[in-house]
Amino acid sequence: MARIFITGSADGLGRAAAQTLLGGGHDVIVHARGAERLTAVKDLIDQGASAVTGDLADLDQTRSIADQVNRLGGCDAVIHNAGVYTGPLIMAVNVVAPYLLTVLVEGPRRLVYLSSSMHLGGRPDVAGLGGNGQAAGSYSDSKLFVTALALAVARIRPDVRSNAVDPGWVPTKMGGPGAPDDLRLGHLTQEWLVTSDEPEALTSGGYWHHQQRRDPHPAARDRRFQDALLAALAAHVAG
């Protein structure tokens, strides 16, 4: 059984994936923004999940999250699930935090990054990721960036299976109760990619929707854009 770390697992798709993976006998590390949010995952902890806390919008707290996971012995897989849709923290939570956790968390050989079909409207311009502690961009930009990050990791680290997943428009707190897509399908692909030994699940560098490969924004596969993004993120977290 695998040990899987899931960011943003106090509610929504992250919690649903944690619940399913725990039920399948896997060792799950759940994540909540602060200690007060652990009440939302108490039932998962009671079932055997480990828990880490920290605000992914804050670089120091994100580093602390990585330290907490590493003190637990690292993990076999990470689902970078946490995300925000509006506000000034979009890039920090949706892009910078997954990058920093990718650099710092020890051990994973399977990585899944939550994307969105809205990434197709993103702009391949990293100017908003300066080294001045600020990160600006739209939700669509952030999902293009994190999709490119997933594919860049797949290219640079052939020992790791790294993929991006569009979960669809599902009825979560972010998606709203009227979302038309299937909630179960919204977290099935992530679970499959981090646990299955089926040949398709053992591939890397894919952009997936409901266990089917799709074509991402061309920039996500562009090596020059990937390299520019990685350089901007490295400068951002160092600055």
Rank of each mutant, 00 (worst) to 15 (best):
A2C: 12
I4L: 02
F5R: 07
T7N: 12
S9K: 03
R15W: 09
A16F: 06
Q19E: 15
L22R: 03
G24I: 06
G24L: 08
D27T: 12
V28A: 09
H31R: 04
H31W: 06
A32S: 14
A35H: 15
A35K: 15
E36H: 14
K42I: 03
K42M: 10
D43M: 03
D43A: 07
L44V: 02
L44N: 07
T53A: 15
G54D: 04
D55M: 06
L56F: 09
D60F: 00
D60M: 03
Q61R: 13
S64H: 15
D67G: 08
Q68I: 11
R71Y: 03
R71M: 14
L72A: 09
G74N: 08
C75I: 05
D76V: 02
D76E: 08
H80F: 13
H80T: 02
N81R: 02
N81H: 06
A82E: 08
G83Y: 02
V84A: 02
Y85N: 13
T86I: 13
P88N: 10
M91R: 04
V95Y: 02
V96K: 01
V96T: 10
Y99G: 06
V103C: 09
V103E: 15
V105K: 00
V105C: 03
P108I: 04
R110M: 10
S115A: 15
S117Y: 11
G121K: 14
G121T: 11
R123N: 15
R123D: 14
D125I: 01
D125S: 08
D125Y: 04
A127Q: 14
G131N: 13
Y139M: 00
Y139L: 04
K143C: 07
F145Q: 01
V146Y: 05
V146C: 10
V146T: 15
T147N: 07
A148I: 11
A150Q: 05
L151D: 03
L151A: 00
A152D: 14
V153K: 07
V153E: 13
V153H: 11
R157K: 13
R161S: 14
S162D: 09
S162P: 09
V170I: 12
P171E: 10
P171L: 06
G178P: 07
G178A: 15
A179Y: 01
A179F: 04
D182K: 04
L183Q: 01
L185C: 08
L185V: 12
G186P: 03
H187K: 01
E191W: 06
W192T: 14
L193S: 03
V194D: 02
T195C: 08
S196R: 05
E198W: 04
P199F: 00
L202V: 12
S204W: 01
Y207Q: 00
Y207H: 12
W208C: 02
H209F: 11
H209N: 13
Q212S: 09
R213M: 05
R213K: 11
R214E: 12
D215L: 12
D215N: 11
P216N: 10
P216A: 10
P216T: 11
P216F: 07
H217W: 01
D222M: 03
D222R: 00
R224Y: 08
F225M: 10
H236F: 03
A238S: 15
A238E: 15
